[in-house]
Structures are given as C-alpha cells and as structure tokens.
C-alpha cells in the first residue's frame, strides 16, 4: 500500500469512528488536516460521503476556519506578526522582504513547496517586536536585512 493509500485508509477509519457523533465534521476535518497537511477536494469528498453531509457544508466549514488549508502548505511555515506592536515596529517591511526573497505572495506557498508565507495577528511576544516565526522557531527584533540569512539556514 502506498503512503497515500495508507492515509486514505486512515481517513476512512477516522470518519467511521466519528460518524454518529453530532458535529463530527470539525474533528474529522482537523484529523484530515493533520494527516494530509491540508484538506484538498478529494479528501473533502470522502468526508462528505462518509459523514453523510453535503460537500457544500464541508467546504463551507473548511473555508471558514483559518486552521484548515485547501492546498498543501510548505515544509516551513513563516508567520510574520502584523499585530499592533510589531506593525508599528516595521513588520510590514519584513513581510515585504520575505515575499520578495521567496518570490511568493502572502498566504501562498513557494513553487518548491519549501515555504508558506503568512501574516498573523498578535503572537503575544510584543516585547520582541517585530516578531516572525518559522515553524516552532521564534525570531525577534527582525529587520529586513536579516531575512536572506535566516532563509538560507532552512534551505540547506
């Protein structure tokens, strides 16, 4: 069984386990997001069929919550805080620099699938403003000129 087939089999098990719960759609979507890294069309169709809800409902929930992504995300997720403190301290210029370096717009993923660039609300580390995170790593007091060096580390 290929890795993908295994994931589909696992998804079907998850659906089976949640099927009779009221409000099963949320936990199943969360599990699918975890499993596949996103909830693409075929996964949503399997969920709709399995839970006996319409694709409209699945898609509606998947697009409502920011935690779900319709397309695969990059290996590294770069989040730049645009909260008040970070913004005032110039996080927009950091974000712009990242976008320029990665040749990718905010909210999308680089062609090589390595990075997803996104803007976030306050991360709660205002003392370090402007803040950016790459997966679990936190970078404080960011300036645009630090960007190429940091990205290089992840490209290795």
């Amino acid at each position: 069984m290929s890795e993908m087939d295994q994931k589909y089999a696992e998804l079907r098990q998850i659906i089976e386990a949640h099927k009779d719960w009221p409000g099963a759609l949320m936990p199943v979507l969360q599990a699918a997001q975890e499993l596949f890294g996103c909830v693409p069309e075929d996964v949503q169709k399997i969920i709709a069929e399995g839970l006996g809800v319409t694709l409209s409902e699945v898609y509606g929930v998947a697009t409502f919550y920011a935690q779900f992504s319709l397309r695969p995300k990059g290996k590294y997720i770069i989040s730049v805080c645009l909260g008040t403190a970070c913004y005032v301290k110039g996080s927009q210029s950091v974000l712009d620099k990242l976008s320029e370096e990665l040749k990718c717009s905010v909210g999308s993923t680089t062609d090589d699938g390595l990075f997803t660039l996104q803007a976030t609300r306050c991360l709660g580390a205002c003392g370090l403003a402007p803040v950016m995170t790459i997966n679990q790593d936190v970078y404080g007091r960011m300036t645009p000129d630090q960007v190429p060096g940091i990205l290089a580390k992840y490209r290795e």
């Binding site: 949503q44 319409t54 694709l55 409209s56 409902e57 699945v58 898609y59 509606g60 697009t63 409502f64 919550y65």
Partner: peptide
C-alpha cells in the same frame, strides 16, 4: 445542498464548493 456559505467575514459568499 449544492450551495452554501463559503469563507468568512467580508469575504463570505453563497457559492458552490
């Protein structure tokens, strides 16, 4: 159920998936 609300906030629209 071939139409439903998609997205949220100002971007909310009634559409097909």
């Amino acid at each position: 159920g071939v139409i439903g609300p998609v997205m949220r906030g100002f971007k909310t629209a009634i559409e097909s998936p």
